[in-house]
Structures are given as C-alpha cells and as structure tokens.
C-alpha cells in the first residue's frame, strides 16, 4: 500500500475505534468525564482501569462508532476541554502513582471558532508540557491517524507504539497539498513527501514498535498489545524517577536533522 492508501485504510469507519481497544486492553474500567473548567468533550474517552492487574489512567481520542457518536465527538477531533480533561487526569495519575496509557486516532485537534476562543493552542501546549515532566511512566499507541499537534498532545510519552497501517504527520496530506501546491488532487504526492507511515516513524525514532493488524483475531491482537504494554510498564517502573525523566527528555531531545559545522546530526533519508 502507498502511504495515502494506508491513511485511507485507517480512516475507514469499519475499523475498531479506541473504545473497542479499551474494552480489550483494560479491566475494571471506570470512564471519567469533564475538565472541571468548562465541560466534557466526548472526543476524549478517559478513565481508570487495570492493565494486567495494574491500575492505569487511560486517555483515548474516540472517533465514535456510529454517525450520531461521530458527530458528537467531532469525528475524533478533541476540543480544548478534551485536552484539559486529559491534563487533569494526567496530574491525577501522578498523584496516585498510576502510569498513563494513551490511544490516539485523530485527524487533529478540532478546528472551529469556539475551539480558538477557548484556547486550543494553549490546551495542546499545556498537555505536551504536562506529559514532558509527568512523574509516572507513560505510553501511547497510535491506532489510526496521528494528526499533528492534536495527536502529539497525547504522544509525548516514554514509548510510542503504532499499528502497522497507522500514520503520524505534522499536517494532513490534504492540508499540505492545498497549502504548498494549491492543488487538492496531489494528496497522494503530499503523503509520499511527508513520510507518514508507521515504518517511517520507526526509522525516525518517533515510534519504538509496530504491532501487526489482525482484525479477524482482534482479541488476540489486543492481547499482544497488552502484553507489550505490561512488559514496558514493568521495565519503566524499575527506573528511578530521575532516570525515567532523564530518558524521556533524551527521547525527545534527540529529534532534529540538520548540519552543524558541516557534520550531519541525525540521519537524512
């Protein structure tokens, strides 16, 4: 599949949505609502549950399973209050020493007048900042689209996993084609140029691991994911807090491909 074909695949409405994964990854789930500031954005499903017996906080962008849900959830594009709910629960997870697990499937943060009025940029900035220094292990899994800053807000984590066809991009190929080339028919070219596939992410060090998709055996697929998450959380919990935060800092500190005094930093394609 070409990168754009992969993106179209993960956008299909018959793919499992975040909640289907939550059902199989976690037990004793209690969904929680609200940012305690303005409202509740159902585009982010969040709560507490156990992963292999260990209590964790989960934060998931949810596209919705039918048209009514999809409309209510802005097709999985979170509003500022969604990110602020996530931030509230991140801080709570730190208080109670619970790891955070994020599931991401979003075209990007919701784009609309009221989102701008309520500080969409500030909400994402605060989410990234909070995850950067959060004193508890953090994981994220991109199950479909990882759209720009709206996805990064939940992906500034100790480990990032992706499904085999999942994509992660600084801008949607549609947006890129229209801004750079003023030509919406060149979406596929833009998807190629941007390098958005899970395999690209592995190469750039943006993701650590890719999981095979096998929706015919969805429970088994989720079991594999759950086992990896549990193993990684076990490993991360052996680190001292200082080491955990140092490793997370270095994980993001390394990003950047440039020349310095004629010497390349990072690997060009």
């Amino acid at each position: 599949m070409t990168p754009y074909e992969k993106l179209k695949t993960v956008r299909r409405s018959d793919r499992p949505t975040a909640r289907d994964y939550l059902d199989l990854l976690f037990e004793d789930r209690v969904d929680l609502c609200g940012d305690r500031r303005f409202g509740d954005d159902t585009a982010i499903t969040a709560g507490i549950g156990t992963l292999d017996g260990v209590p964790v906080t989960y934060l998931a962008t949810e596209k919705g399973r039918d048209l009514q849900e999809r409309m209510r959830n802005q097709f999985g594009c979170p509003k500022p209050e969604g990110y602020r709910k996530a931030i509230r629960l991140m801080r709570q997870s730190e208080k109670f020493g619970r790891p955070v697990v994020c599931l991401v499937d979003t075209l990007g943060a919701y784009c609309g007048a009221e989102a701008e009025e309520r500080g969409q940029g500030e909400a994402i900035a605060e989410s990234i900042l909070t995850l950067s220094g959060l004193k508890t292990p953090t994981l994220s899994l991109v199950i479909g689209e990882g759209g720009s800053g709206g996805a990064l807000a939940l992906c500034t984590t100790d480990r990032v996993y992706m499904l085999e066809n999942a994509c992660y991009s600084v801008i949607s190929p549609e947006g890129c084609a229209s801004i750079l080339w003023k030509d919406s028919s060149r979406v596929s070219d833009a998807a190629d140029a941007l390098h958005i596939t899970a395999q690209d992410m592995l190469q750039f060090g943006v993701a650590e691991q890719i999981f095979d998709e096998d929706f015919k055996h969805f429970p088994a697929m989720c079991k594999t994911i759950r086992r990896q998450m549990a193993d990684d959380l076990k490993l991360l919990s052996t680190f001292s807090l200082e080491q955990l935060l140092e490793n997370r800092y270095n994980r993001f500190r390394k990003f950047g491909i440039f020349e310095e005094g004629g010497v390349m930093h990072g690997t060009a394609l």
Binding site: A125, I128, L129, S132, G133, S148, G149, L152, T156, Y168, S169, V170, I171, C176, I179, L180, A193, L194, H195, I196, D200, M201, F204, V206, R248, Y249, F252, R253, F255, G256, I257, G266
Partner: peptide, 20 residues
C-alpha cells in the same frame, strides 16, 4: 511541513526544555 514528522517533534523537544 517540509521536515515532516521531525518538525512536529520540535514542539515536544522545545516544550521539554521549557519544562526543565
């Protein structure tokens, strides 16, 4: 956008330095 995902990661990199 001409630097793809690496440009998105700059947001995370700078934010981590702001946090410290």
């Amino acid at each position: 956008m001409q630097e793809g995902i690496v440009s998105l990661m700059q947001m995370a990199k700078v934010s981590a330095a702001v946090q410290r």
